[in-house]
Design a protein around this nucleic acid. Structure first.
Length: 315
DNA sequence: ATTTAGACCTGTCAGC
DNA sequence: TGCTGACAGGTCTAAA
């Protein structure tokens, strides 16, 4: 679900709201969400740790904890993070009354009698939708950091700080870093025979692009998604580099792309879906040339492009 | 060595 | 109304 802009947006919100706070403990409602270390160790080690800093690495959200540890959170398709104010109780009664439903939905949330209901109702997290909570971090000040994930693909891991190479294996250069440029992209694409879109999705050449922003970046660069990665001209690579930086930067500025599931830390949807040029725009007219946007399947992923401005063959 | 299908999961929506 | 199939912001692994 979230690609680089959504992760970055959440990271910025977390940075201004939880740095300096202590994680009292964690509640895990779906064990497989914890990818490392095994659950008992994870619970033991994460408890009573101060959150020192928030970072992002590709699509990973990173919470640096005291004691040279870091939490990495990868939301995959449907993961979300919500910061719940103090004053809400976790209702786990479903665990006993309907174990099957509990397994898919997890706990629900109830306002305690002490909660100011006006404050509660103005909060953007739809508490009906915060079902599918998989992990809850109880903060020392009473707030809760909720990890929700209907499809259960996301993973949360806890690593020593010197294990970044393992934790982020295969994650390539950061596209919004000043160190990233067209020359670096050229080297990363050299010798890659696969379709350029597949290479972009693989994270190794450049980190953080997913299905939405890969399609959008290729459109901005006027490059057909099926072009062989090593066939791009220097001009095309320069355009692709600019396109990647552009779509990601705009995505962050618009608060991320929400077309169904993604919400920010406060439960708000982002606006970036209103700015899609090709992604899920098949059947509509290209804003540049007026051709009809097409959808194909590439590496089992829906792929959207303009056949008018993104040509497969040179004429 | 690469490509590709399958696995992991659940919800939603279109069509019959 | 139900049922079925396609599809969804991702990544890993086994088989071809």
């Amino acid at each position: 679900m979230p690609e680089l802009p959504e992760v970055e947006y959440t990271a910025r919100q977390l940075r201004s709201s939880v740095v300096g706070t202590t994680i009292r403990d964690a509640l895990v409602f779906w064990e497989r969400t914890i990818g490392h270390p095994e659950l008992a160790t994870f619970l033991l080690k994460v408890a009573d740790r101060r959150i020192e800093a928030i970072r992002r690495r590709g699509k990973y959200l990173v919470l640096d904890l005291e004691g040279d540890l870091f939490l990495s959170i990868h939301r995959r398709m449907t993961g979300n993070l919500f910061l719940l104010p103090a004053g809400w109780e976790i209702d786990t009664s479903l665990r006993e009354t309907d174990p099957v439903a509990w397994s898919t939905r997890g706990p629900s949330f109830l306002a305690t009698s002490a909660v100011d209901l006006v404050e509660g109702s103005s909060y953007s997290v739809d508490l009906a939708k915060t079902w599918y909570c998989r992990v809850c971090f109880n903060l020392a000040d009473g707030r809760r950091l909720l990890y929700t994930d209907p499809r259960k693909f996301g993973r949360i891991e806890l690593w020593p700080r010197d294990c970044e190479a393992v934790a982020f294996k295969g994650v390539g250069p950061e596209p919004l870093s000043t160190a990233f440029n067209a020359k670096q992209l050229t080297q990363a694409l050299a010798g890659r025979k696969s379709a350029i879109k597949q290479v972009l999705l693989a994270q190794e050449a450049v980190a953080g692009l997913g299905n939405i922003y890969a399609d959008e970046a290729l459109y901005l660069a006027s490059i057909h998604p099926l072009r062989r990665a090593d066939s791009l001209s220097p001009t095309e690579i320069e355009l692709l580099y600019q396109g990647i930086v552009s779509v990601l930067t705009l995505g962050i500025e618009h608060g991320g792309t929400s077309f169904s599931g993604y919400r920010d830390l406060w439960g708000e949807a982002g606006d970036n879906y209103d700015h899609m040029k090709v992604y899920q725009q098949d059947g509509k007219r290209c804003l540049r040339c007026g051709a009809l946007i097409e959808r194909i399947v590439l590496a089992q992923r829906g792929t959207h492009f303009c056949p008018g401005c993104q040509k497969l063959t040179v004429e």
